[in-house]
Nucleic acid binder design. Sequence first.
DNA 1: GCCAACGTTGGC
DNA 2: GCCAACGTTGGC
Length: 140
Amino acid sequence: MAKDRPNYWLMKSEPFKYSWDDLVEEKEGTWDGVRNHLAKNNLQAMKVGDEAFFYHSREGLEIVGIAEITVDGISDPTDETGKWAAVKIKPKRKFDNPVTLKQIKAEPKLADCELVRLSRLSVASIKPDEWDLICKMSES
DNA sequence: GCCAACGTTGGC
DNA sequence: GCCAACGTTGGC
């Protein structure tokens, strides 16, 4: 348990559509509405216990906290064709200091992460060392 | 509000 | 199967 690290992800949401506070209020939220194949692949690769950064796009442009996957591999309830995937998440920890996109771009080690490279991808994967670094950045 | 990047669609 | 046109997304 201790040595096996979960997978790490980054989930983007527009705060006026679905914000971190909305998730906290709901206690558990379904991450649906994804209509991008790469993002779908990432969603399907998620497992219960994986952790994901919660990122506010368009407004804020910062990672505001960490969510945990509570249910994996469900089909998107908003999709009638049944082709798209979704997961359920719950808030795990809010960052003391949100990590902004500007900070991430200013960090050479994060310059080639999926968030920066594929700015339009709504569900990106995060490497463990990138995860650690961003967590550290949120503490200072 | 603008524009660049990317995905999708449709004509050939 | 290629590629141009178009729509959408997201950073600025």
